[in-house]
Design a protein around this nucleic acid. Structure first.
Lengths: 209, 209
DNA sequence: TATTTGGTACCGACCAGTCGGTCTGTCCTC
DNA sequence: GAGGACAGACCGACTGGTCGGTACCAAATA
C-alpha cells in the first residue's frame, strides 16, 4: 500500500524534529522533505501545532494500549509489572524519535492538545501505580516505599533511555529490558514475593554463586 | 549586595523559559521582565544562545562540584553513591527551573556551547560509573548488571524528578532523596555489601518486622 | 578645585529576514 | 461539472540582532 501524503509528512516531521527540535524546523522544510507544498501540508493539518499533537498521540496511544494489554494478559503484580516494563522498553526500537519529540517538545503543545495527551499519560501512570499498589497489598512488594514514588522512578528510569539508547549499540533493546526488570524487581520485591512466585525468572543470573 | 543587571536577566530568563520554553520567550519579553532594554541585554550577552548556555552551565557546574565533593568526603562505594544521590536530588529545591531548561532545551544549544556542556555532563556520569564499578570490584554491588546501565538508570530516575516534583508537595525533597537511596541500594547491593558496611543506615525501615 | 577626557554600561528605534498561515487556481476523479 | 487534493505565490506579524546615541563615573589635566 502506498504511503499517503499525510503519512509522509508525519514521517518527515518526526525525523526532522528529532534532529533539530520542533522550533528548529519550519513548515517549509517539512514540506520540502516530504515533497509536497504548503497547500498539501495545510490541507492535511490545521496547523503546525496539530502536527505536533499527532506525533504525541501516536506514541502515547500505542504505549497505553501495550500497558493495558500487559495488565490483562497476566494476573500477578510481579508478572504484570515485568510485562509492562518489557513492552515499555521495547517501544524504543520503534518509536525513539516520537519519544524524543514527546519529552523535549511537549511544553510547546497548545493547551487544548496538552490536555488530551495528559489524560492518556495519566492513565498510563495509573496502570503502573495500580500494579505496584496491588503488589504492596498482597505482600509481594515492599511497603516502605510510597507507590507513587516507585511509579515515577520506574517511568523516569525507562524514559531516560531515549537520551542514550542507540539502535546499533552494544546492548539490544531486549537485554536492556531484562536489566530494567532485574533492577526494578530487586528494588521493590519482598522476601515473600521472591519465594511466592517464580520471580527468579525475571532476574538476571548471578555469575558468582 | 544589589543584583547586577546580568543576574536579573538570567533570573527572568530562567523563570520565563521554564514556563514557556526557550522558543516561547522572545528577547523582548526577557528585556521587559528584567526591566532593561535590548541594549542592556546585548551588552551582557553575545546572543540569546549564549544566555541559554549560561543557564546550562550554572546548573551542570554546580552539580558536578557537588558530586566531586561527595566522592572525596567518603571512602566506600555505598556511602559515596548515597552521598551523590542525596546531593543530586537535593539540587531540585534550588535549581528546578534550571534543570527543566537543561533537559528540555539542550537540543537548541549552539554546537560550540553544546560541547562544553557535554564535557561536564560526561564527567559527572563518569563519577557515578566509577563508584559503581568500584562497588562491583569489591563485591558490594552485584555484577550481573552492567555498570553503565545502572548509571544511566540512576541518572534517569533522579532527573525525571523535574517532571513531577513540586516544592510544596506532600514529600520534602529530603524524604524523596532517602527513598531514592533505598530503591537504588536495594537494586544494586549484594548480601555481602549489606553486611559489610552499615548499609542499613541508608535504607528505609520496614514497618512489618 | 574646576574642567576635560575616555571608557563602560545601558537605551530604544530600527532593520532585514523568517515564519506560520492564507488564498486563488489547477488538476484529477467520480 | 462538482468537489476533493494539492500547488505555490503571497502576506502580515514577529524575531533576533544592530547601531547611533546618552548617562555616569573615575582619572587626568589645568
Amino acid at each position: 500500500m502506498k504511503k499517503t501524503l499525510k503519512e509522509r509528512i508525519i514521517e518527515s516531521a518526526i525525523n526532522l524534529f528529532e534532529k533539530h527540535g520542533y522550533h528548529g524546523v519550519s513548515v517549509g522544510q517539512i514540506v520540502d522533505d516530504s515533497q509536497t507544498s504548503k497547500g498539501g501540508f495545510y490541507h492535511n493539518f490545521k496547523s503546525k501545532d496539530e502536527l505536533l499533537f499527532y506525533i504525541h498521540d501516536l506514541f502515547i496511544s500505542y504505549v497505553l494500549d501495550k500497558a493495558r494489554e500487559a495488565y490483562d494478559n497476566f494476573d500477578t503484580p510481579v508478572s504484570r509489572l515485568c510485562a509492562i516494563i518489557q513492552s515499555f522498553t521495547k517501544v524504543f526500537d520503534l518509536y525513539k524519535p516520537h519519544i524524543t519529540v514527546f519529552y523535549q517538545e511537549s511544553a510547546y503543545l497548545a493547551r487544548e492538545y496538552q490536555q488530551l495527551i495528559n489524560e492518556k499519560r495519566d492513565e498510563y501512570r495509573k496502570i503502573i501505580l495500580q500494579v505496584i499498589s496491588e503488589g504492596q497489598s498482597n505482600g509481594d512488594f515492599r511497603s516502605e516505599v510510597p507507590a507513587e514514588i516507585s511509579t515515577m522512578s520506574i517511568i523516569g528510569m525507562i524514559n531516560w533511555t531515549y537520551k542514550w539508547y542507540k539502535k546499533d549499540g552494544a546492548l539490544s533493546i531486549d537485554s536492556i529490558a531484562l536489566i530494567f526488570n532485574d533492577l526494578i524487581l530487586h528494588s521493590l520485591i519482598t522476601e515473600k514475593g521472591m519465594k511466592d512466585i517464580a520471580a527468579e525468572t525475571y532476574l538476571l543470573k548471578s555469575q558468582r554463586q
